[in-house]
Design a protein around this nucleic acid. Structure first.
Lengths: 111, 111
DNA sequence: TGGCTTGATCGTATATTTACGATGAACTAA
DNA sequence: TTAGTTCATCGTAAATATACGATCAAGCCA
């Protein structure tokens, strides 16, 4: 059994899926995405009305989603309107689906 | 705009999805799951042959997946055989699917 | 101009994650 | 019993994530 490291290289799929998952890995970001998805259109700082957290914290989570490409912002001072990035959202869905579609093969007598 | 906190409560769905996503949020864990899924059956420490990391680190990642319920281990000393927990895997797939199935509603003129 | 609103960013504290080597526990084989 | 194998756990270091208040920037309105 190998016991030391030797430069880990991940495949594109591994990296991409992990990156998407990381963006979804906090309940507040899940909520933000659901709010953006369920509203008829984009959203603004009303987000902070639905999310009982400091404004700066919400902004930080928005940044994470933004950097993951899952949302985009329309700067319209003094307001900013956020919405789901449809293209990347579809990509994320496809990546997730492809991952879960892998069948659990064969029989296994694990306890 | 709200600027201070006031006890954040998340819905079950928000918590569950974030928990699953967190388990998938590292490329090595994605790889481990793919290995377990693609092999005809369970797996053992051969994992460390496919993953160039310290054995203790792989074990740590296995623990994360284990605690998320995505895999299970069959202790068969001195070996341990891991496999995907089919039931929870199906649940995870359902939760993910339900999340992504939310349509991106309406039109949006975000930049 | 001065003050208001919105929202990002900064500085900071704390918690969690990630990685490693070393060690320990459990069982097998000699 | 002794030695070897497999794998978890411990201890630790470094990086990242999370949350907050304070502040800054941009634009509005009076």
């Amino acid at each position: 059994m190998q016991r030391t490291q030797s430069a880990v290289r991940y495949s594109e799929e591994e990296e991409v899926l992990a990156r998407i998952a990381k963006a979804l890995a906090h309940p507040v970001r899940v909520r933000i995405l659901r709010l953006l998805l369920s509203e008829s259109c984009c959203f603004t700082g009303q987000l902070t009305d639905f999310i009982p957290m400091a404004q700066s914290t919400v902004s930080q989570h928005l940044k994470v989603l933004l950097e993951a490409g899952l949302i985009q912002g329309d700067i319209n001072p003094p307001k900013v309107r956020y919405c789901v990035n449809r293209e990347n959202w579809a990509k994320a869905e496809a990546v997730m689906k492809a991952f879960f579609v892998l069948p659990v093969l064969g029989q296994c007598d694990c306890s």
